[in-house]
């Protein structure tokens, strides 16, 4: 069993059944996890921001930073390894937020809204999710089983 770490603003896909994809300490970022149980192909994206318009130049160099450029790439990369869209299990976690009574920043909410919209545009439905609140999350995907685990700092581990 070996661990593949997904860095912030990056994505990883694999068809190695002994691998575990993991991404740490999401903050307001969101992890999008795709998994095809038939061919055991999966991927994970750790996106930071909703929209590549924030910095189009960086989006070209590092599309995984943004929901609108990262999600299509994640999907394509999984398909290239043999995953089939109709079989993909989609899970989403992250998007936590600091206490913000004025609602000025709300970056977690904006990220989540963008993720939902872009997944929908690609015909993907979210099967399970753990998003929002003041939770800081770490997420893993076990390739052999497709199990997605979420660890919330200070609140233990649960399966999505």
């Amino acid at each position: 069993m070996h661990q593949i770490v997904v860095d912030i603003g990056e994505y990883q896909v694999t068809d190695d059944p002994s691998a575990i994809l993991i991404t740490y300490s999401l903050g307001s970022c969101i992890a999008v996890v795709l998994y095809d149980p038939v061919v055991k192909v999966g991927g994970m994206l750790h996106l930071m921001l909703p929209d590549s318009e924030i910095n189009p130049l960086r989006a070209r160099e590092r599309p995984g930073m943004f929901a609108d450029t990262g999600i299509p790439l994640l999907l394509e990369s999984c398909e290239r390894l043999g995953a089939e869209k109709s079989r993909l299990q989609v899970k989403v976690a992250g998007g936590g937020e600091m206490l913000d009574s004025s609602g000025f920043f709300r970056i977690g909410k904006r990220n989540y809204a963008a993720v939902r919209r872009i997944l929908w545009q690609h015909g993907l439905m979210i099967r399970a999710q753990d998003v929002g609140g003041n939770a800081n999350r770490t997420v893993s995907l076990e390739m052999a089983t497709g199990k997605v685990k979420v660890k919330i700092s200070g609140d233990g581990i649960k399966e999505l």
Partner: peptide, 14 residues
Amino acid sequence: LGIGAGNDELSEKI
């Protein structure tokens, strides 16, 4: 960005 955010930073006020 979650950098060293631990169990506390997201439970602070902006």
